[in-house]
């Protein structure tokens, strides 16, 4: 073959094969990352197999006690009672509290940063909010344990329980036994931890609402607030929702700070002002000294539940993000 022609053919030049090599190595990296997730999931399921096989998915998810050597108080017979329900309820409740507090707060902060704050102040405040994200969670746990929980027990906890608690389920307090270790405290600790995430995502989404839309509304005789309420927030709502759900996912899996304040009691709490247990805190406190094989399988089963929920949530966020990406195509 003519030398000149060879240079032009696909396999002729070394440059091209280096390109192919690099492309293949990136492909391998992608496959490895994907395999990691699949492998992790497979190992967790395999290790926790006794729970799924012997006790079944539904009984595991709905049994409200965690007792590998359960002694029936009436008959005295022993049995295995391992259920994830206390942890599921504790996890969901504490994360919802975190979200209810951090969601609106974070969105409001983002609105202020983008819409109202002078630029310099916004830069300073953004830095501060990012600093919160940099606080190690164990330090936030200490704050929850020694500052917030005591303050809340002695001041507004009773007030919340006796007002909101009469209307909304799970919010009443046992007046005889007020406690600082509670699902509520865990939720507030989570709120502090996820606020920066809500702010960061909301800020970007709010900022990306085009000036032309704001001007269109302002030009019709809308006040700043009316434009924010009727145009900016509705246009950004899918993105904000995505950010909030991402933050929810983070809250579900948070371990150490929750472990420090939630009370670590394996019961289904009837109120957020009672101690409870989250999936992550249960695994963290028990995995080190578990000897019973069935209990070990149960703990790993909890891991499977958390993994499925977290991955599922993140898939939903991705789908939302795709919808958001298409939102401006027509405009």
């Amino acid at each position: 073959m003519d030398d000149r022609l060879r240079r032009l053919t696909r396999s002729g030049g070394r440059l091209l094969s280096a390109d192919a090599l690099f492309r293949r190595s990136t492909l391998v990296a992608v496959l490895a990352a994907g395999a990691l997730l699949v492998l992790l999931f497979a190992v967790l399921v395999a290790q926790s197999w006794p729970i799924w096989a012997d006790r079944g998915i539904v009984p595991f998810l709905t049994t409200p006690t965690w007792a590998p050597n359960y002694v029936d108080p009436v008959t005295g017979a022993t049995s295995v009672q391992i259920g994830a329900l206390p942890m599921i309820v504790g996890t969901v409740l504490s994360s919802i509290i975190g979200l209810v507090v951090a969601g609106p707060l974070g969105v409001l902060v983002a609105v202020f940063l983008v819409e109202y704050s002078p630029r310099r102040l916004a830069i300073g405040l953004t830095f501060l909010v990012e600093l919160i994200a940099a606080i190690p969670s164990v330090v936030i746990g200490i704050w929850g344990l020694y500052v917030f929980s005591i303050f809340s027990r002695d001041t507004f906890q009773w007030w919340i329980a006796s007002t909101i608690g009469r209307v909304i389920p799970f919010c009443a307090e046992d007046p005889a036994n007020p406690t600082r270790f509670s699902v509520f405290t865990a939720g507030m600790v989570l709120a502090v931890m996820i606020v920066p995430m809500v702010v960061a995502v909301s800020r970007e989404v709010i900022r990306s609402v085009p000036l032309s839309l704001r001007e269109g509304h302002t030009g019709m005789g809308a006040t700043r607030w009316e434009t924010i309420r009727h145009v900016v927030l509705p246009t950004a709502r899918i993105g904000i929702l995505g950010g909030v759900m991402l933050a929810f996912g983070r809250a579900l899996g948070e371990t150490i700070a929750v472990t420090m304040v939630i009370g670590n009691v394996d019961q289904v709490p009837t109120s957020v002002f009672q101690p409870g247990q989250s999936i992550a805190s249960k695994i963290a406190t028990n995995l080190g000294d578990v000897t019973d094989q069935v209990e070990l399988a149960g703990l790993l089963g909890l891991g499977v539940v958390l993994l499925v929920v977290s991955v599922g949530l993140s898939v939903i966020v991705r789908l939302l993000a795709r919808r958001l990406g298409g939102a401006y195509v027509a405009s």
Binding site: E215, G216, M220, G221, P234, T235, S331
Partner: peptide, 28 residues
Amino acid sequence: VRVRRTIGMVFQKPNPFPAMSIFENVAS
């Protein structure tokens, strides 16, 4: 704000509000 209700404006780039329906755009 009152001035802008008396003096309407149409912009260079069409800017209907994406979160509103055709009806709501006009009614806004």
